[in-house]
C-alpha cells in the first residue's frame, strides 16, 4: 500500500478513468433526477427547477402510498420465503461431503447467470392458464375422474412473489452458505453435548451466530425485489404494480418526469435506508468474530 502523494502519476492514471465514468454516468444523472424531483412540470415538455415539494407530497397520495406499501410488502414476503427455503438448503449444502459441495453450489448458482427475462418467460410458460402446470393438474384430475377447470395462476400478486422468489433465491443461499461454513462446528457439538436438541441448537446457536449472513442475504434479496420492474410487469395483474412500474409509466407514458424522478429518489432513499439499518445493526452487535480465540 503506497501513499497517493508519493506516486502522483500512477495514482492519477488509475484514479481518473473510473472516477470520471462514475461521475458522468452515475452521479450526474442521479443529481439531475434529484433536482428534477424538486422541479415543476411546465407545459408538455419543459421543466423548471423551482424547488417545490409538490412531487414528494404527491407521492404520499393514498394511490401511490399504497403502491409503496404493496412493493415493500411483496419484497418482504419474497425475502421471507427465500429465507425459509434458502436456510435449510444452505446448511444442507454446507454440511455435504466435500466432493458434493461444488456441484450443489453450482446447481444453485447457475440460474443466476441465465437471463432474467428468459427465466420469467419460462415461468409464464409453466404457469399460464394453458401451461404445463395446469396441464399436469388436469391429467391428475382426469386420473381420479374429478372435473377440472384450469386455474388462473398468473397475473396476480402471488405470481409476482413466486417470480421474485424464483429469481432471487441464489442471492439468499450464497451468503447463508458462507455464513454456515464460516463458524466452528464444534459449537454445534458443544451444544448437543450440553443437552440441547436439534431444534434448540438451531434457534439458540446457529441462527444467532449466522445473523450477519442472514441480514446480508435478506438485504441482497430485499433491495432488488423492491425495485423490480420486469417481474411485476410480466407476471403481475393490473393491481399488482410495484414502484418501478409506476416510475416507468411516469417516464414512458404519462410523461411526468418530475414526479417520476421523485418516486425514483424515494426508491433510492429506501434502498439506502435498508443498507443503513444493516450497517447500524452490525455496529451495535459488539462481537465480531464467530471463532473463539485460539
Amino acid at each position: 500500500m503506497k501513499s497517493a502523494r508519493n506516486h502522483k502519476l500512477a495514482f492519477w492514471l488509475t484514479f481518473c478513468p473510473p472516477t470520471l465514468w462514475m461521475l458522468i454516468f452515475l452521479l450526474v444523472p442521479i443529481l439531475i433526477i434529484g433536482i428534477f424531483s424538486f422541479s415543476a412540470k411546465q407545459g408538455l415538455v419543459d421543466i423548471s427547477a423551482s424547488w417545490v415539494l409538490d412531487n414528494h407530497i404527491r407521492a404520499f397520495d393514498p394511490v401511490y402510498l399504497s403502491v409503496f406499501f404493496k412493493s415493500i410488502g411483496i419484497a418482504a414476503l419474497t425475502t421471507l420465503i427465500c429465507f425459509l427455503i434458502g436456510f435449510p438448503v444452505a446448511i444442507g449444502i454446507a454440511s455435504a461431503p466435500k466432493s458434493w459441495k461444488p456441484v450443489l453450489l453450482m446447481i444453485v448458482v447457475l440460474p443466476f447467470w441465465v437471463n432474467l427475462l428468459i427465466r420469467t418467460y419460462a415461468l409464464i410458460a409453466v404457469f399460464r392458464t394453458r401451461g404445463f402446470f395446469n396441464f399436469s393438474l388436469e391429467w391428475v384430475a382426469n386420473l381420479f375422474g374429478i372435473p377440472f377447470e384450469p386455474l388462473t395462476l398468473l397475473y396476480n400478486d402471488a405470481a409476482v412473489i413466486l417470480g421474485l422468489v424464483y429469481i432471487h433465491l441464489p442471492f439468499m443461499i450464497l451468503p447463508l452458505y458462507a455464513g454456515f461454513e464460516g463458524f466452528n462446528k464444534s459449537l454445534l457439538e458443544a451444544a448437543s453435548d450440553l443437552g440441547a436438541q436439534q431444534f434448540k441448537i438451531i434457534t439458540a446457536i446457529v441462527l444467532p451466530i449466522m445473523a450477519p449472513s442472514i441480514i446480508s442475504g435478506c438485504i441482497l434479496v430485499f433491495i432488488p425485489a423492491l425495485g423490480s420492474f420486469l417481474t411485476p410487469e410480466l407476471l403481475g395483474g393490473p393491481s399488482s404494480q410495484m414502484i418501478a412500474n409506476v416510475i416507468e409509466r411516469q417516464f414512458l407514458a404519462a410523461n411526468d418526469w418530475p414526479f417520476g424522478s421523485a418516486l425514483s429518489m424515494m426508491l433510492i432513499y429506501l434502498t439506502f435506508g435498508a443498507l443503513a439499518l444493516r450497517y447500524f445493526w452490525l455496529r451495535r452487535r459488539n462481537f465480531s468474530s464467530t471463532e473463539n480465540k485460539p
Binding site: 466452528n184 464444534s186 459449537l187 457439538e189 458443544a190 446457536i205 462481537f287 473463539n292
Partner: peptide
C-alpha cells in the same frame, strides 16, 4: 460432558 480443544464457547 466435554471440554473442546477449541473450547467451542458460544461467541454470542
Amino acid at each position: 460432558n466435554m471440554v473442546f480443544q477449541s473450547y467451542a464457547l458460544f461467541p454470542h
